[in-house]
Amino acid sequence: MSQYRLRMAVTLKPEVLDPAGQATQKVVAERGYPGVVSLRIGKLVDLWVDASSAEAAMALAQTLGQDFLANPVLERFEVWVINDED
């Protein structure tokens, strides 16, 4: 068993309205930061997982994402392994 560190980005599905991102983008534009045409806000989840392999840790994280951490009605997620050097 070793410990793996994984990071999951939970984001709203692209077709779902993001009121917070929309309002933030508008203020960003008003305050004179040019070129930001869209801004969407999600969540970042860090996981420390004891598992037999990186693949097993990933598989667990995938299940966790589907069942628990992301809301399948509104969100989707990506997960990746983070190396200690990062």
Partner: peptide, 12 residues
Amino acid sequence: MRPTVQVGDPYT
């Protein structure tokens, strides 16, 4: 079958 869920935006 559910369509894209409406999201409430109380600010707007």
